[in-house]
Amino acid sequence: MTWTDLKTALAAQDYVASDDLAVALHLALSLGRPLLLEGAAGVGKTEVARVLSAVRDTSLIRLQCYEGLDASQAIYEWNYQRQLLAIRAASEAGEAGKTVEDRIFSRDYLMERPLLQAITQDVPPVLLIDEIDRADEEFEAFLLEILADFQISIPELGTITAASKPIVILTSNGTRDLSDALRRRCLFAYVDYPDPATELAILRARCADVETHLAEQIIGFVQALRKEDLEKTPGIAEMLDFAAALMGLGIADLTQDPAALQATMATLLKTQSDRAQITPEVTARIAGKAA
C-alpha cells in the first residue's frame, strides 16, 4: 500500500487527510513506529485512529489519559473481589492453599486494561492513546518502556510479550510539553485546521445533502470566523454541527435570515466572551463576505 492508496482508503471512510498526514500515517504503518499527532482541539486527531481501524479492519483500543492515570488503570489489575470470593469458597470447600493461590493468580482473574489488551490481540489493533499531555510525566516514562519493546511484566504471571505489534497513535493538545524521549520515539505530524478546499471535501463527505451553494458559504463563513480573535476557535466538528443546524432550520442561504443565523452560532461559539464579541453585526458582515 502506498501513501496515495492509504489516502484514498481514508477518503472512502469519509476522512479527508492532508498529504503530510497521509505520508506520516503511511510511514507509521510501514515502519511500525508510533505516530504522535498534535494540533488544536477539533481538527480530527482522534478520528484518524477510528478511521484507520476501519481501513485496516481491526479493532480500536482507546486509552483516554487524565491526570493521575496509573498502571492499574492503563495496563492491568487483579480482580480483587473475585479473588476474595474464590478464597472464601475454597476455604469452605477445604481446598489446599497452594492450588487456590495458583488459581486466583491466573489469567481468569486478571482484568486487562487497554495497554495489555492491545498487545495480546492476534490481529494487530489500533491503539489510540488520547491526550497524552494530560497524563503525568511518570506515566509517560512508563509508556515509553512499553512502546519500546511491547512487553509487560506481571510479577505473579511472568512477562507477556506482544503477539502482534499494535499500531500506536498518540494525540496531544499541547497543554504541556512532552518529553524529548517520547517525541524521539514517535513519528510526528502536526494537524492544522484544514484549508477551504479540504474542509469543503470534509463537509461533502459527512453531509452529502448540503447544496453546493450553501456548502461553499458555510466553509467561507467558518474559515473567516477562525480568523477572528476568539478564545475557542471552532473546529471541524463545530463546522459540521453548524451545517446540520442550518439544514435543520431549513436555511438555504446564510444572508437570508440574520436572526436564525445568529441562533445557530451556538454551535460554533462555545464561550460567553466569544458570543459577546461576535455580535449580529459581525455575523452579518462575515456572512455577507462568505456569500
Partner: peptide, 12 residues
C-alpha cells in the same frame, strides 16, 4: 520533505 518531517521533527 513530508517523510523526513514526520521522522525528524517532534513539535509544532
Amino acid at each position: 520533505r513530508a517523510a523526513l518531517r514526520a521522522v525528524c521533527t517532534g513539535c509544532k
